[in-house]
Structure formats: structure tokens, C-alpha cells
Design a binder for these strands. Sequence first.
DNA 1: TGATAATGTAAACAAATGTTTACACAGGAG
DNA 2: CTCCTGTGTAAACATTTGTTTACATTATCA
Lengths: 196, 196
Amino acid sequence: MDILSEKEEEVLNFINIYNKKNGYPPTVREICTGLNKKSTKGIFVHLLNLERKGYIERLKGLSRGIKIKKHFKMETISVLGNISAGRPLISEENIEDGFLFPDNVEGKFFLKVKGDSMEGAMIYDGDMVLVEKSEDVKNKDIIVAFLNGEFTLKRFIVEKGKIYLKAENPKYPLIEIKNGDDFQPFGKVVGVLKKL
Amino acid sequence: MDILSEKEEEVLNFINIYNKKNGYPPTVREICTGLNKKSTKGIFVHLLNLERKGYIERLKGLSRGIKIKKHFKMETISVLGNISAGRPLISEENIEDGFLFPDNVEGKFFLKVKGDSMEGAMIYDGDMVLVEKSEDVKNKDIIVAFLNGEFTLKRFIVEKGKIYLKAENPKYPLIEIKNGDDFQPFGKVVGVLKKL
DNA sequence: TGATAATGTAAACAAATGTTTACACAGGAG
DNA sequence: CTCCTGTGTAAACATTTGTTTACATTATCA
């Protein structure tokens, strides 16, 4: 990735902070006043450079049309279950197999765990698992998957050409994925959040 | 809080989803096309109502000047340590007493724990504690505090009129806060995120 | 030093966008 | 039915804002 000039760095940083504070990106003029510039020209050039170097994306012509590329953005993670007004994105209808399941959020998000099937992996009832949406799961990952009409949280096991879903609790049987099964990995668990 | 009409609910929801997906709020016209309306008038009225009822804040005249009030917004939490370009908000200078410490984020955020002083509370080296910024801490809360020039993570204990900071590990002594101490609670730990 | 690039000021232009006006239509309340 | 409210279309208007042009200033470097 191309290196940034001091000014470009300053601009990128300002956008990041502004975004964080206000919930939307600044206009070119807002960046100017924020950085004590009297003309938009310089900032405009910096924005072009930041785009050329791959740090941001510009939606040409649109107001506040600045998107900081994922890697250079202060990261945020969606927290579910907090939509208390409007038609909830996480509704009762989306509770499948003990999980609160989102239907609209990209990237990482939390799911609330119900049940004791993963206690062996230190994941307990009421914990929030941090899931990274991805269909590319590897052997021994703990994954969220869609299996025969239900969502489930299990460890993904590949052994001797066979695929298994394993609960980390001896109470529950090992599940083998067979040819006729409707199996679709949804994402992998990358963290566990315990509420205190 | 005033109740919303079906249409208003629809608009609020659209804004929330749009915001989540794009990182900035929609324009009035974008809401229109999103909800299959050919005129901006209806949506504009809904926005006025949403503001009057306290669900959103409007920055009059500004493009994309819609802020969803905290309680009605899909919540996001800041994750530190991911600022990999620009002048980092979390810099080496901010690592105090084993914590990555933010200097710019409001509300809740994660701090990375270094050390074993809170193992008794299931908080281990490398975990991320979710901290809610607040100077109002209660007895037995696990808190982040500034004590005599350093930040520290301890359990806050009030007993017989005395204040103590207690490490959840017998290796470390109980600390009593005395009159001359420079003690300032910074926030309370409301969760622990373990990376898998 | 002098050339060149980077950065900035000032001003103008065009597009995007918030806001308003005029009017239409449907449904409910009196 | 008639009035009122909520919602909508269509169109115009004013401001905000991205973009461009012309030129000045500053920094860098051979």
C-alpha cells in the first residue's frame, strides 16, 4: 500500500474521527474548516490521492461521499438486540435454534447463545459470540451454520473425507453431514463476549 | 416516547439499515427511491415527525443531516487497536499499565488486558474488556481507574467508609485509596471478549 | 540558486440535496 | 356528506456541496 504524506495522513485521520463522532463522513468544506484551510482545493487533491492510494473510496458527486476502506477505518462491530423501535431487524421470527439471528448486517456481529451445547468450548448460555460472516470455514473452527432448516452453533470437523458438526458437550451427539443434507456454513466464531 | 405510525417506522428502519450498510445516512431522495416514493414530500413530513417525536435529530439544511437518537440506533461498539494508518489514535504513548487506552472514543469501548491481575474474575491476559465510560462506579464493580499516574483494572470495593482496589489474584496486594492519592474512576467493565 | 512539485487561496460552476408550495386522493370522524 | 388528517405527486426554489479553473505560496531537491 502506498505511503501517505503527512497532509494526507492528517486528512484521513480527520475523516475517521469525524465519522466516529458524527456517524457520517464530513463534506470537503468541513474537512477544510476542521484543518484550518480556507480553500477546498488542497483537501480535494488529498482526497483524490487517498483514493488513488487505496485508503478511501469516493462516490463521485455525492455529498459526504467518502468511504474509508475497511482496513483503515476505526472498526465497529454490530451489537444485536438493541433495536427497540421500528420493525426490529432481529425479531422473534428470527430466533432459530436458540440464536438471535440477524438478517441485515454485514461483516461481524454478535449472536446471543442459548443452550449449553458448547460449554466445552467455554461458551455458555447467555454469552454473545462474535461471528465473522463467511462461508469459508476450516477444520475445527467453531461455526454458525444452517442445517436442514435450522441455525446451529457447532464445531466444524473434517475427518477422512467426512464432515461433522460437533457439540462441545457430551450430552449432544456428533452430527455427520450427509449428501442429502441442506448444509450451509454461515460464519465462524471469532470471539466470545461474556456480560458481567 | 410517542408512538410511530407504520410509515414513520418504515422510514426510521430504512435509515437504520442504510446507515449500517453505507456508513452514512441517506438523503431524502434516497429514502424516497428506497421506499418507492416518487415525491420527497411525504418522506420529508415523516422526518419532521420522527424529529418531533424524538427518534431522530435533523441538522437543518445539511445534506444527509439525519442522526438517529442513541436508543433507536443499531448500536455499535468501538474496537481499539485497529487503526493501522494515519496518526494512530491509540499510540504507544497511550499504553499505560498494560492497557491500550483510547483518547478519542465516546461511550463503550474495548481495552486489551495485559497481565494476570484479574484472573480470579475470569479476565485473562489478551482478553478485551468492554468498558462503559462513567465516573459513577458502584461497590464491587470491576473498574478501570486512574491511580497516581497510571491506569489500572481492579475491583472497586467500599467497606467501612474506606475505598479499596482489589486485584482478583492473590499474587497482588489489596490497595487502599487514601486521601492524598490521585484517584479517578474512568469506567466500569461490562463485558469480557475472548478472542478464539 | 532555480526548477519542480506540493500545497494553498479565491472564485466560479454544476450537481446534489433540503425545503417549500400547490394540489390530489383516500379514509375516518362528526 | 363534509371536514380533517395523513399521505402522496409534481414542480419549483434555495442552499449545500463536489468539482474545476486560475493563480499564489511554500517546500524540496538537484
